[in-house]
Amino acid sequence: MEKRSKSGTLKRQWPLYVMVLPGLLYLFINNYGPMAGMFIAFKRIDYSKGLWASPWVGFENFKYLFKTGAALEMTRNTILYNLVFIVLGEVTGIAAGIMLSELRRKWETKFFQTVILLPYLLSWVICAYIGYAFLSRETGLINGLLNSLGINEVDWYNDPGKWPFILTFVNIWKGLGYSAIVYMSSIIGIDHSLYESAMIDGATKWKQIRYITLPLLKPTVIMLIIMSIGRMFYSDFGLFYQIPMNSGTLYSTTQTIDTYVYRALMTRNDIAMSSAAGFYQSIVGFILVLTANYIVRKSSPENAMF
């Protein structure tokens, strides 16, 4: 096949180029066009002159991201939370996906799939209300329970030590339905004859999962991990801002880059400074992804993203 000339390939493959056209067009309009607007990060916006004619200020707009000890704290939090979320999120997602696909009764699959997807459908603000229903000092359900058990109340919103666990739980709680479905769709696609012949060979369920399902899920897992690594410097604003109810005493364990930027710019509506934050997060993510992809390419080239 390699022998054929380039023009020959093009002639043969033109329908494939036609197919990708609408999607690429959309990406150029929706993503690449606006990407050109990143220059805003290097401007001081003067509305009377317009965006382009505003004065250039170099890296001035980036400085606030690296100011004082807060920078260290928020970067540390962002990275650590992401690492935990990637690992636990993948593990629980794969487990849930496998379990759902192993259910034998149709209504059970329907029921469990629908139910664990529910949290994903709620907006963060509503999740925060629900969280408050459980954790509120005055009227919270958990403190009510602790009281009736004779245990001392906990002032959840003023106890930073508890929040790494709460946030991790909430994040998995909300995302589990989604990732379970991603994995389920891969598992369902697996050729069933593989399992049937394994069963004939007397392989136990655990062995089937260990030697058939998991290896076949590997490409999906690697892909999802590489993509999460690209978002390493991002954090889900709703999770880190709304769920802790913006409580100041919790900043040491809840402040991430996104919440810091939001709070910093709340009173100053500065699009240049917020673009700078996005630019910084993207660049770091880009470098991390290239590195991760490079490592994958070295060890198992067929799983690399590009």
Binding site: E60, K67, A70, A264, R268
Partner: peptide, 10 residues
């Protein structure tokens, strides 16, 4: 603006 960003957070 840089200082204020940090100050508002504090």
């Amino acid at each position: 603006a840089t200082e204020l960003a940090a100050i508002v957070n504090v």
